[in-house]
Nucleic acid binder design. Sequence first.
DNA 1: ACTTCATATGAATAATTATTCATTTAAATA
DNA 2: TATTTAAATGAATAATTATTCATATGAAGT
Lengths: 106, 106
Amino acid sequence: MKKGLTKICSRFFTNLANPTRLAALEQLLEKPMSVNELATALGQEQSMISHNLKPLLDCNLITIQKQGKKHIYTVNQETLQPIFAAIENHAQKFCPTGGKCLNGEN
Amino acid sequence: MKKGLTKICSRFFTNLANPTRLAALEQLLEKPMSVNELATALGQEQSMISHNLKPLLDCNLITIQKQGKKHIYTVNQETLQPIFAAIENHAQKFCPTGGKCLNGEN
DNA sequence: ACTTCATATGAATAATTATTCATTTAAATA
DNA sequence: TATTTAAATGAATAATTATTCATATGAAGT
């Protein structure tokens, strides 16, 4: 890790450290969609989705494409794919049973 | 991303989304060290370091090796290296100027 | 221009997470 | 076994972040 990356990493991880945003990303990985589609798919309020998409967009973890009234959001796969892959590997190799990493809820 | 990884990812990212813990990891990447060494290196209280190392350890992002009284912590490079690399790439390619991702402090 | 549909924003409150300080546990050694 | 050193824990408070609800913006169609 390059020195001084602590700051950008902190913001980056903060953006990802949220179940609503992760669920949104998970959904958007299936296919790009609009805010309302996302809200419906996740069973959440539209404003909640908007609020949560904003930091992801600001950090370029998703991109927006405006089609008239609709705003279609797309995942930045180049960045997120390897990260999720690393976590999947970690889960399998280092937390096979979930363990303390998953004890408790969230 | 495999379905249902949202939960583990959330905990995972929550652990990383903290400047103190990132600084600790950055330091431990240089070389494994004890709690007090870390505290000194980062200019923080021992109890703060301990509190922050705990979730990293619970999630196996670091490992512990007890040498008598001293507890030497080591980074799980297999997991963290590719993640930090992906973020570095992201920062260069998608946030070359920092932009909104870094505006404000943190 | 008015209405509708889609999204974003703001401000208040709720919930979560971090930090501090005091205390405890545990290992090593006198 | 008493003392010292290293680290962990607990509980209180501070700080941050999430969520909700009301409202604003903005694009399209009438």
